[in-house]
Design a protein around this nucleic acid. Structure first.
Lengths: 189, 189
DNA sequence: TAATATAGTTTCGAATCGAAACTATATTAA
DNA sequence: TTAATATAGTTTCGATTCGAAACTATATTA
């Protein structure tokens, strides 16, 4: 057992999932990376719903991401919004049509099947391991890890169901704290 | 935690590894899938060193694989051989140049790094989980799982360091039993 | 001997992706 | 208050990936 096995397994699993995703999306003219990006954007908070964040999340280049977003927008699954403070930034909102589509395509069918067949212990173990692996790789590549407020060191609870972000110095609605943030830093508490 | 997380982690990890693999191979004009195929063929036994086997191993189509092989052959990293019994089959041998190259590119650098940072328990846990996941997906897709003789139900030990395959009815050299086989079926012993 | 199955190649077109050049807005330094 | 630099994003380009389908050739089965 060596480190090539790790790379090998990941690659083969990814190929299988990708090939399924391709089939699942074919009925809706949705490519794998388009589905993934749409899925991400449906779960990203207001600091993280930009092309730049998508770029970081998937480790792609900004040119590639720009193409993907253009395609999704043309299909009416995504809408572009301006940023009030920064004229360079673009905010991407998934349209109702986009959300409807996501329900049909994500996750891939056999992933759901395999998941359903696992017992609870196996599920959490697997996710914990994958998460650690991802974070280790991201750390080595000096990338942001992304995460939700609950586990973030910048998150402060200011009352019953009221939260405040110490980084952006803004209050957050409870629902927002469930979304992914590119500025997330694990709390060391 | 839901099944979308699983798909999500796998995809992001795969993207990172792939992007590194691309960089590692750039110096040698080797694409990610070319590296992977070459690596596989360097570890495949004589029943599994064919284009068809590569197709199954990575879950690609035969047309795609044919392209990849052509490219590797043109670069002198792979050589084509005929099958003595079946005129349709092609056997693919990695050349010394190919083996030399593999040592330099596989596995990707940060994968090696992350692996080195893990303790032994973590390593085996992670690999076991990934292997299970892969096999579950393969079972659901009615694909061959690939594996080495040691864990195969067709493998019979016929003496000191002597082995025999009950499926192909052929004796196997000890070194061969360490290679990957597309006909592998887990022994239920 | 004919029909079918399997192994592999070729051709085609769509999509992926990175690299590099480019525009526009922000931030920092002089 | 400019000028320089950094950041966000788009566009263009070309190489590669990939699947689908048509094709050739050999094996197997009827």
């Amino acid at each position: 057992m060596t480190d090539t096995h790790l790379q090998d397994y990941i690659e083969r699993i990814a190929h299988l999932i990708r090939s399924e995703t391709r089939i699942a999306g074919a009925d809706f003219d949705l490519q794998p990376i388009q589905q993934s990006a749409l899925h991400y954007l449906a779960h990203a908070n207001r600091y993280s719903d930009t092309p730049q964040a998508v770029t970081e999340y998937f480790g792609l280049t900004k040119g590639t991401v720009s193409q993907t977003i253009k395609a999704l927008e043309a299909k009416g699954l995504l809408e572009r919004g301006a940023d009030a403070q920064d004229g360079r930034k673009v905010h991407l909102k998934v349209t109702p049509a986009g959300k409807k589509l996501l329900k049909k395509t994500m996750p891939a069918r056999t992933v759901t099947g395999v998941w359903a067949d696992m017992d609870e212990g196996m599920r959490t173990d697997l996710l914990v391991h994958l998460k650690n692996l991802l974070q280790d790789l991201q750390r080595k590549n000096e990338m942001n890890a992304f995460g939700v407020c609950k586990t973030c060191r910048f998150n402060r609870k200011t009352g019953d169901n009221r939260f405040f972000c110490e980084l952006t110095q803004e209050p957050l609605r409870p629902a927002e704290t469930e979304l992914l943030c590119r500025e997330h830093e694990t709390s060391t508490a």
